[in-house]
Amino acid sequence: MGAPVERTRIRRLPDKAVRERSTLHAVLDAGMVAHVAFVHDGHPFAVPVAYGRDGDSVLFHGSSGSRLFRLLAGGAPCCLTVTLLDGLILARSAFEASMRYRSAMVLGACSVVEDQEPALRLISEHLTPGRWAVVRPPSRKELAATLVLRLPLDEWSLKVSDGWPDTGPEDEGWDPPTGVLPVRTVIDPLVQEP
């Protein structure tokens, strides 16, 4: 079990809440892009990042020259989200149309990963397994330009929607096709650069 704190309790559609850490890990392992949100100078920001899960934490990286990443490196509170779209739910009414999804939210503060190369390898292997072994490793200059951050999976929530369309008496007489349009991410073969 995980996330036994009030601010990550799912209030809207609590029946979709999942508390098994293994399911959280599975969602994070299946995703490729996370969004990290935080407030700076009174303005909200949400930054897309490539990431990888390292046990009970998430690693992601950005430019060491980025004021936003330096803010995160300084321990600013943040929220990391990963959402996987599994299908579109087609109902008899527009109001009941929905989605099948798995959505993870992690709250906390980041710490800087000092040993960057293994962390960057982990992120690379998450996105493109086996690639790290065949590419040039990062140079000292490239490592100096990169900031790797670790966000612990201490406070999180996970919501899974895997249902079917809802139909009520007000939908009688309407007979459009209903059900689920499955959605999946497909990685095609490499398109060689010219």
Score class of each variant (00 low, 15 high):
R150Y: 05
G42W: 13
T185K: 14
V5I: 10
D162F: 09
R131D: 06
A3L: 07
C110Q: 01
G87L: 03
P165R: 06
R150E: 01
K16F: 06
A133G: 12
G31V: 03
V27E: 00
T178E: 07
R92A: 08
T146L: 05
R12I: 02
A30F: 05
S22L: 06
A109S: 15
R92V: 04
R92Q: 11
C110R: 02
D171G: 03
V112N: 01
Q192M: 15
H25T: 01
D54N: 13
G55L: 12
A145T: 05
A34I: 02
G55R: 12
T185N: 12
E114W: 06
L147D: 00
L24S: 03
A26P: 02
E142K: 07
T167I: 12
W174R: 15
A37Y: 09
L90Q: 07
R7Q: 10
T83G: 10
R136K: 14
P137A: 13
W164C: 02
V134Q: 11
L90W: 04
F95H: 13
D54A: 15
L127W: 11
T81G: 14
R11K: 11
V134F: 04
R102L: 07
S111Y: 03
G2W: 06
V160S: 01
S66N: 10
L151N: 00
D56P: 07
D54G: 05
A26H: 06
A17G: 06
D41L: 13
A104P: 00
E117Q: 13
P77N: 05
T167N: 04
A97S: 15
T128L: 13
E142R: 10
R12W: 02
G163H: 11
A109M: 08
Q116Y: 08
P152M: 05
V5P: 00
S157Q: 12
W156G: 03
W132Q: 04
G74V: 12
I10R: 13
L24A: 09
E193C: 13
P176E: 14
A97V: 03
D171V: 04
H43N: 09
L149N: 01
P176V: 14
A97Y: 10
